[in-house]
Amino acid sequence: MIKNAPFRSGEFVSLQFKWGPGNNLENSYDSATGIYQYKNAKDSLVRKSFKLRHNDIIYLHNKANELGLWNFPEVIANEGTDLKKSDVLRYEMQFNYKRKSKKVIFLSDYHDIPKLRDVATQMKTLVEQTITDAEERYGKAL
């Protein structure tokens, strides 16, 4: 089944992860460039540079397969939510492959389908933890 999956680990190009309130996604990580930026507790923008290891990428790809990321809707938000006006904490995950990409926008207040909320939260947490681990290993301030 994994062999016929629409997204293959050997074709992985990059991961982009952004988050913030509403459309203000100042916090981000791009695995292609290695640029990581986020607002710290003092509301200052911190910029660092580090790349994910190959096994980090394989791990995230396999977890995305396991959790069914490829079947997630593009937007995971409560019915009637206006994405342009909502100030709820938002996460954007984009997995880029040679021939395809999968982008998911996940609003943290989502509650319509609990199982979908749980797996989206789990995927977001896995991406965050992988980035945090890589930052602790290699992060250099720019």
Rank of each mutant, 00 (worst) to 15 (best):
Gly22Cys: 05
Tyr36Pro: 01
Glu74Asp: 14
Arg8His: 09
Val13Ile: 15
Glu79Lys: 15
Asn65Asp: 14
Asn78Ile: 00
Asp133His: 12
Ala41Thr: 10
Tyr91Ile: 04
Phe95Val: 02
Lys115Cys: 05
Asn96Met: 11
Lys42Asp: 12
Tyr110Ile: 00
Thr33Phe: 03
Thr130Leu: 11
Gly10Tyr: 13
His61Ala: 08
Glu74Asn: 13
Leu107Cys: 01
Phe12Met: 14
Arg53His: 09
Met93Phe: 08
Glu79Tyr: 09
Glu92Asp: 13
Thr132Asn: 12
Gly34Arg: 00
Arg99Leu: 14
Glu135Asn: 14
Glu11Leu: 14
Gly80Glu: 03
Phe17Asn: 03
Ile2Met: 09
Tyr110Cys: 02
Ser44Glu: 15
Val88Asp: 03
Ile58Tyr: 04
Tyr38Asn: 04
Leu83Arg: 13
Thr132Ser: 10
Phe17Leu: 05
Phe12Asn: 08
Gly34Lys: 00
Gly68Asn: 07
Val104Cys: 06
Pro21Lys: 11
Arg8Tyr: 09
Asp82Gly: 02
Tyr59Glu: 09
Ile76Trp: 01
Gly139Cys: 03
Phe50Trp: 04
Tyr36Asp: 15
Gly20Val: 01
Ile113Glu: 02
Leu83Glu: 13
Glu128Asn: 01
Val75Ile: 15
Lys100Arg: 15
Asp30Pro: 05
Gly34Asn: 02
Thr121Arg: 14
Glu11Met: 09
Tyr36Ala: 13
Asp109Glu: 12
Tyr138Leu: 14
Leu60Lys: 02
Glu11Gln: 15
Gly20Leu: 01
Gly34Asp: 02
Ile35Arg: 03
Ala134Arg: 08
Asn65Phe: 09
Asn40Ser: 05
Ala120Leu: 01
Lys48Pro: 03
Val104His: 01
Asn55Ser: 14
Leu15Ile: 05
Leu89Tyr: 03
Glu135Ser: 15
Leu107Met: 01
Met93Asp: 02
Leu67Val: 08
Glu26Ser: 11
Val75Gly: 00
Lys100Val: 13
Leu67Asp: 10
Glu26Thr: 13
Arg8Glu: 09
Phe50His: 06
Thr121Val: 06
Asn96Phe: 08
Val119Gln: 06
Tyr38Gln: 02
Gly68Arg: 07
Pro21His: 12
Asp56Lys: 00
Tyr59Asp: 07
Arg90Cys: 09
Ala5Pro: 00
Lys3Cys: 10
Ile2Leu: 13
Val75Pro: 00
Thr81Trp: 07
Lys102Pro: 01
Phe12His: 11
Ser14His: 05
Glu74Gly: 10
Ser31Asn: 08
Gly22Thr: 04
Leu15Glu: 04
Arg137Leu: 14
Val75His: 00
Asn40Tyr: 08
Gln94Met: 14
Lys102Trp: 07
Phe72Thr: 01
Thr125Tyr: 04
Glu79Leu: 06
Ser101Leu: 15
Arg47Val: 10
Ser108Phe: 02
Ala64Asn: 07
Gln37Cys: 10
Asn78Arg: 03
Glu11Pro: 06
Ala64Leu: 09
Asn96Leu: 06
Phe17Arg: 05
Asp118Ser: 11
Phe12Cys: 11
Tyr36Lys: 13
Phe72Lys: 04
Glu74Ala: 14
Asp118Asn: 09
Gln129Val: 09
Glu11Tyr: 12
Leu126Ile: 11
Tyr38Val: 04
Gly10Leu: 12
Tyr97His: 07
Gln37Ala: 09
Gln94Val: 12
Ser44Cys: 13
Phe12Tyr: 13
Tyr29Gln: 01
Ser108Arg: 13
Met123Tyr: 04
Asn71Tyr: 12
Asp30Ala: 11
Leu107Asn: 00
Ala134Gly: 11
Ile58Asn: 07
Lys48Gly: 02
Gly10Asn: 13
